[in-house]
């Protein structure tokens, strides 16, 4: 297996790792965005139902679960290889120029490291806010669907996105995603050697199209939530607004500790732990 290591540790090989993990992450983003578009249903009740069922499916279906580990691995590998490459590239130019004309194709291509760092920070925050809470809990709303108890992830998302300053952070991060892909997607193909007079301009166009698609798509969510539930200054205020509106639109509201919630818990077994 020595040749594999030799290949992947060469300068081209490292770039291939970046490319493969990066392109895989893009496919994840596409799925993630399309799934999350369910948040945009105007009716809070049906939006909550659909989204929360979808969340259970995404966290329990074995194939997707397995893929998610690949995803975590990819994020870590992508970041680590990037860090390693950046250090190595810095070493290749020990003395900086006094005047730099910046001849790169795009601003994004020159700043992939910064954009990537923003994204890494965002991913950590994002997972802390949603993924960690969803799996390991805290006292959060749950709702009834077909007699069963579901974690009301929709409410959690709505609450978070209603806080304006958080949404701003989120929007900035989405801009970073866009710019990262503006360069990254086409760069991934170039690294794999997939360059062809007939298709490269299409890939380049797709790269830009994807960037815009992600910026618009992901940004629509906090904007939609603020439109739906109003703009809040902090999480408490937002939680109240979300609860009130949800109840008004027919969502039965209970709170419980998500960490102890089994998937097959009947709705009437739930006792609100700490109602407002």
């Amino acid at each position: 297996m020595n040749w594999i290591i030799r290949t992947l540790t060469s300068s081209v090989g490292k770039k291939v790792l970046m490319s493969l993990t990066g392109l895989f992450l893009v496919t994840f983003l596409i799925v993630h965005l399309i799934g999350n578009l369910q948040l945009l249903y105007p009716n809070v009740l049906s939006a909550s139902e659909k989204f929360n069922v979808y969340a259970v499916f995404m966290t329990t279906f074995p194939l997707i679960k397995a893929t998610s580990y690949l995803l975590y691995g990819s994020i870590i590998l992508h970041a680590l290889v990037a860090l390693f490459l950046t250090l190595q590239n810095k070493k290749a130019r020990p003395t900086a120029y006094a005047v730099n004309g910046n001849a790169e194709k795009s601003w994004a291509s020159r700043n992939m490291g910064i954009l990537g760092s923003i994204l890494l920070f965002f991913i950590i925050m994002h997972m802390g806010q949603f993924w960690f809470q969803y799996h390991f809990g805290g006292n959060h709303p749950v709702m009834e669907i077909d007699g069963m108890t579901y974690k009301n992830l929709y409410a959690l998302v709505a609450t978070t996105f209603s806080v304006w300053w958080f949404s701003v952070l989120y929007l900035i991060s989405m801009a970073a995603v866009g710019f990262h892909l503006w360069h990254g997607f086409q760069s991934g193909f170039q690294t794999l050697g997939l360059n062809h007079v007939k298709y490269t301009s299409l890939i380049s166009l797709a790269s830009k199209g994807l960037a815009v698609f992600f910026i618009v798509g992901f940004s629509s969510m906090p904007l939609a939530m603020m439109a739906q539930f109003g703009v809040s200054n902090n999480l408490d205020e937002a939680a109240t607004k979300v609860m009130n509106k949800s109840i008004k639109e027919g969502v039965e509201w209970k709170m419980t500790d998500w960490s102890n919630l089994k998937p097959d818990t009947k709705w009437d077994k739930i006792v609100t732990t700490n109602a407002e």
Partner: peptide, 18 residues
């Protein structure tokens, strides 16, 4: 040639097009 290029201490390509 790639192996020699790496050995010489050049950086890697990030497809910036510069």
């Amino acid at each position: 040639m790639v192996a020699q290029m790496d050995e010489e201490g050049f950086g890697s390509c990030t497809n910036t097009g510069a």
